[in-house]
């Protein structure tokens, strides 16, 4: 556990040292703030004291930002050879993968914490369904964790960060929208399988305030599979 935290701390430091963290925070808050308060189907347009519009925007901004954060994690270590020094230190592959995963998740959580003023503002405007807001945040965190684990996996595939980014988006877009679209057009068993695979289905039900174990299992399995594949990739390099 201690090793995981040491790795995370270094990664977080590196996010902030390289300006990546600031760019991500400013862009995320900018986009989500703009569409939540000023433009499109914003809070005033909907005329409801709810954060549904924010969750809808965050769902898409995080989808594009997360691969940009994760693409560096292993690709850069592989390219510069620093992975050799890292794995010959007393850390095992799992601690390494979990440390990197945790660092990115923490950065996302920091970004989400910074949007809490939205919640306070909305709560002052009218009666808010507090449960729905908290479960909406939980949904965003779970969804971020899923995409981080996909992003870490694609980053561990090659030495090239761009390959990591594109591949993460390519895999992500299926979960994000394509499975959902296909499920709408298909019926029967195949349709319901695709519907279950679609991330948006699970995200929407959570962000409406319904926390079902089925949804939790879905997110946790994506995270788990992504991390296992990453660990496999690391181990493969040493054989």
């Amino acid at each position: 556990m201690k090793q995981i935290w040491i790795i995370s701390k270094r990664e977080l430091q590196s996010f902030f040292n390289s300006l990546m963290a600031y760019i991500m925070l400013v862009a995320f808050l900018g986009f989500s703030g703009f569409f939540t308060w000023l433009f499109g189907s914003d809070v005033f347009f909907v005329k409801q004291a709810s954060l549904q519009s924010f969750f809808g925007i965050a769902y898409w901004t995080l989808f594009f930002f997360i691969p940009a954060l994760t693409m560096r994690l292993f690709a850069e270590e592989n390219r510069s050879g620093t992975i050799e020094l890292l794995v010959t230190k007393p850390v095992n592959d799992w601690q390494l993968v979990l440390g990197k995963f945790l660092s990115t998740l923490l950065l996302i959580i920091i970004a989400l914490v910074l949007t809490l003023p939205y919640y306070i503002t909305v709560a002052n405007l009218g009666p808010v369904d507090h449960g729905a807001v908290w479960s909406g945040y939980l949904g965003l965190i779970l969804m971020s964790a899923a995409y981080i684990s996909i992003g870490i996996f694609t980053s561990s595939i090659s030495n090239n960060q761009i390959v990591g980014y594109m591949l993460a988006l390519f895999i992500g877009i299926f979960f994000q929208i394509i499975f959902g679209l296909l499920a709408g057009n298909l019926s029967g068993l195949f349709g319901s399988i695709l519907d279950y695979l679609s991330l948006s289905t699970h995200f929407e039900s959570i962000s409406r305030g319904v926390i079902d174990t089925k949804d939790l299992i879905y997110f946790l399995s994506i995270i788990f599979i992504g991390l296992v594949l990453t660990e496999g990739n690391l181990a493969k390099k040493r054989i």
């Binding site: 270094r10 430091q13 590196s14 040292n17 390289s18 510069s80 050879g81 620093t82 992975i83 050799e84 020094l85 010959t88 230190k89 007393p90």
Partner: peptide, 18 residues
Amino acid sequence: IKKHIGYLPENNPLYQDM
């Protein structure tokens, strides 16, 4: 074992931005 080894790899890969 890793705790007992000090290792300086070829080309000395270090984190450049640290």
